[in-house]
Structure formats: structure tokens, C-alpha cells
Design a binder for these strands. Structure first.
Length: 280
DNA sequence: GTCCAGGCCCTCA
DNA sequence: TGAGGGCATGGA
């Protein structure tokens, strides 16, 4: 049905699975072995690892190769982004904050994830912490997703459809807190036709953000996360508590957004990773 | 017990 | 336009 499971190997640069895994943009990558991830997106799954620093191996049904290449951003112009970043790193010097963040996060990529899954995941993320977000998303998939066993006997659960999340009382016991009513309302908006996610994803940045912020439970920050991670707007720049601290501490005169026009979201992602994961 | 977590919403000025 | 409080839940 999906074709025989095959291992694809692609040459990559500035790509690091571990950095991406710890960057807060994914909540249900599962580490299986030292350098091995079970990665699910929507109702698809693959196993990914890096046999060499410049090689990404992806094991998936053979007709999903294009999906996963897109998911991992392999067609995106990261060499161009890095030319700009390197220019500014040389100009600012090695001690500058962004130089250190970029050096530490040189394998960061902003993935192309399914918009619906990102929308629900980041509604859950509000006023929450990452371990609990992961637990809630996992519980949501386990209870309302479909159980799938791959040809390699890997078991995973698909991300629930909007139809599966419309009943508020079903959502109890998943640790969602007050966010449960937002999720049920959004699911109902989708199934009822009041919210067309692909249509929002096709809008330009400003119109899409306005449409998202009109949805109960989605404010400025979550809207920017959905735009960045799920709708391909690489210039979206979510400001959460971590980024707020960095901006206040390192850029009291304002963040030089114009330097990174078109890929500010990638810079934001590097800062988030560096700030949380690296000893400075 | 208090504080915080990838915030949002409502009220009030 | 901005400040302040409430909100579910659980770990530190």
C-alpha cells in the first residue's frame, strides 16, 4: 500500500538530528538507540540516523521519500542562509552572542511539519513545560491516533484527526488542564468547516497570523510557532519566555531582525537551542 | 506551600 | 496599548 520499506541516504550539510531533536520544535521524536530516531509526522513514520556527519539515512516506505526530504528541509536554501550568518559572525567576532549561538547550533534546521499537528501541539504548549507537552501529545496520540506496526515491527501512533478530538469530555485525563476546551473547539471548527487549515497555510504571513489569532487559545506566540513550524513561514519569530530573556539581556537596543530577513525563525531556533542546551 | 512552565484571555485604565 | 490577575496541572 505504501510500498516496500527502503533506506534512503542523502548528503546533507549544516544538519544535525540531535540538535533538531532538542530544539523544541518536535514533541514526539523517540530516540531508539544512540543515534537513531523514530520520527512520526501526521500518519507517517520513519527511522532516521546519521551514518556520517554529512549523511542522513531515512528508512521509510519507498513512496514517502519525497515527503521526508521536504519534512527535513533538504530542498531549502540553507547554504544561502549560512552565507549570511557567516558574514555576520565574522563581522561581530566570536564572542558575540549570535556567533556563539550559531556555532553551537550549526546543524539546526526548521522542519516542515503538518500544520494541524503543530496547531494542536502548540496550543498545548502554552504556559506549560516541554516534558509535560511531550507527555500530553503522546497521550493524545495513544488514545485517539491509530496504532500502526511497520514492516520493521516498529510500533507508533498516528496524530489524531480533527474528528477524533471534538468531544471535550474525551480529553480528560491527558494532563491538558484548561487547554482541553481550546482543543475541542478548534477540532470542531475544523470538522464544521469554520476553519480551513490548508487555506490558512496558503495565506501570506500577515493574513495567516490574523486568521490564527482569531482562534480561541491562539495568541501572538502560538500563532508564530504555527506559522514557523507548520506553515513554512521561516521569517516568523516566536517570542517565548526563553527568547524574551535573551532579547532583554543580549539585545537591549533591539534585535537586528533585518540582518536575517527571510529566515529570522531559524535564528530564533538556534537561540532557543543554545540558551537551553549549551553551557555558555 | 510557592514558583514556574515555548501564554492566552479578560478587565480596567 | 499596556498592566495585572486568573487559569489546570505537575515537578522542583
Amino acid at each position: 500500500m505504501n510500498g516496500k520499506t527502503t533506506t534512503f541516504e542523502w548528503t546533507v550539510s549544516h544538519f544535525d538530528l540531535d540538535q533538531i531533536a532538542e530544539s523544541g520544535q518536535v514533541f514526539r521524536w523517540e530516540r531508539r538507540g544512540p543515534e537513531n530516531y523514530l520520527i512520526s509526522a501526521g500518519d507517517r513514520v520513519c527511522v532516521a540516523y546519521m551514518p556520517a556527519p554529512d549523511k542522513l539515512a531515512v528508512r521509510c516506505p519507498e513512496n514517502q521519500a519525497a515527503f521526508w526530504r521536504y519534512y527535513f528541509g533538504l530542498g531549502d536554501p540553507y547554504p544561502e542562509y549560512w552565507r549570511t550568518i557567516n558574514t555576520w559572525m565574522e563581522r561581530d567576532g566570536p564572542d558575540a552572542y549570535l556567533s556563539k549561538a550559531a556555532a553551537a547550533a550549526s546543524g539546526m534546521v526548521v522542519l516542515h511539519q503538518p500544520a494541524w499537528e503543530i496547531m494542536i501541539s502548540f496550543v498545548i504548549s502554552q504556559n506549560n513545560n516541554i516534558p509535560r507537552i511531550r507527555a500530553s501529545v503522546a497521550a493524545l496520540c495513544r488514545r485517539f491516533g491509530k496504532r500502526i506496526t511497520t514492516e520493521d515491527d516498529e510500533v507508533y501512533y498516528t496524530f489524531p484527526s480533527p474528528e477524533a478530538l471534538t468531544e471535550l469530555e474525551d480529553l480528560a485525563g491527558l494532563g491538558l488542564g484548561y487547554r482541553d476546551k481550546y482543543i475541542a473547539a478548534i477540532a470542531r471548527a475544523v470538522t464544521g468547516g469554520g476553519l480551513d487549515v490548508p487555506m490558512v497555510a496558503a495565506m501570506d504571513y500577515s493574513r495567516a497570523k490574523a486568521a490564527l489569532k482569531a482562534i480561541p487559545g491562539i495568541g501572538e506566540k502560538v500563532a508564530n510557532c504555527i506559522l514557523l513550524y507548520g506553515m513554512g513561514h521561516l521569517d516568523a519569530f516566536p517570542v517565548d519566555t526563553w527568547i524574551r530573556r535573551v532579547l532583554d539581556r543580549e539585545f537591549p537596543g533591539g534585535f537586528p531582525m533585518e540582518r536575517y530577513a527571510g529566515f529570522g525563525g531559524l535564528i530564533q531556533q538556534m537561540i532557543f537551542y543554545y540558551e537551553r542546551r549549551v553551557e555558555k
